[in-house]
Design a protein around this nucleic acid. Structure first.
Lengths: 140, 140
DNA sequence: GGTCTTCGGTCTCTATTCAAGACCTACTGT
DNA sequence: ACAGTAGGTCTTGAATAGAGACCGAAGACC
């Protein structure tokens, strides 16, 4: 069962292993999750399989270039599968693989946290931007 | 309780709201989590409070510039706090705020998933890079 | 028959962001 | 006196993201 302590322990282990980017799951996997679009696409596909243009409409401000690239990355990592139908204008459907579905639970818990904490984060940002220099000068 | 269905529902809600980046917790929060360094720093600070150079040593291949900037972002979002001690060479300690600690549980579950799935992801990447074009042509 | 739109992309070009490393002030040890 | 440490900032090049043009084939429109 993961908790803060085991996280810290694992951090030490990763560090001991020289923090090789190839070997470190955090760097490998979280870099992809945080890829600005990929998590959004995963959530979009969690609802149901969708086609390319459908995804493009669902996530309005992604460019085709980035959509293509993000889908390729997701496919490469085995989180989604790509199905080509040789229809008159070709249609391509993307759907979550079992591996991708297994990611939804932890991803949902993160999103859940994000929604719960969003007000507090926004408040903190506002305070920070207002010049709130609440830095403790311990033992002046 | 979050599950796939509620995620999908929320996605529809975000979409209905015009997907304003300001209002969407996923884009706001996940963008930061996936900021390449921030989650790593959060994990590093989960173990214990650390000082600037200590963090720089703990995460070997981050540049000072990015370390400074990532810490500022984290501080701005209220996930960490910054404590300046007016010692002879000034020392600055960073530590997780309560909000930051509340993020560790979902983050840990994601990292847990990442470690469990890493082998499968690596295998998938290898297959993909080997030119495994396993695209289903339904109804040839 | 000619033109317009859809679909799933690719290509090019520009703007932003990242990363490496020099530099800075103040102090400390040798 | 000189180098080194601490916590950064600044400058400069490299990688990356985004906007939008283009493409081929097939309908649908007129």
């Amino acid at each position: 069962m993961p908790n803060d302590a085991s996280l810290a322990t694992r951090f030490d282990e990763w560090q001991a292993q020289g923090f090789d980017a190839e070997a470190c799951p955090v760097r490998n996997v979280l870099d992809r999750i945080g890829d600005k679009w990929t998590s959004l696409l995963l959530v979009a596909l969690a609802a149901k399989p969708r086609r390319f243009s459908e995804l493009h409409r669902a996530v309005p401000d992604i460019s085709k270039r980035m959509l293509t690239q993000s889908l390729r990355d997701l496919q490469r990592d085995g989180l989604i599968t790509r199905h080509v139908f040789p229809t008159k204008p070709p249609s391509v459907e993307y759907r979550l693989s079992p591996l991708g579905q297994s990611a939804m639970a932890p991803l949902a818990s993160l999103i859940d946290w994000a929604e719960r904490s969003f007000a507090e984060i926004k408040a903190s940002r506002a305070a920070f931007d207002a010049g709130d220099t609440s830095e403790q000068m311990s033992a002046a």
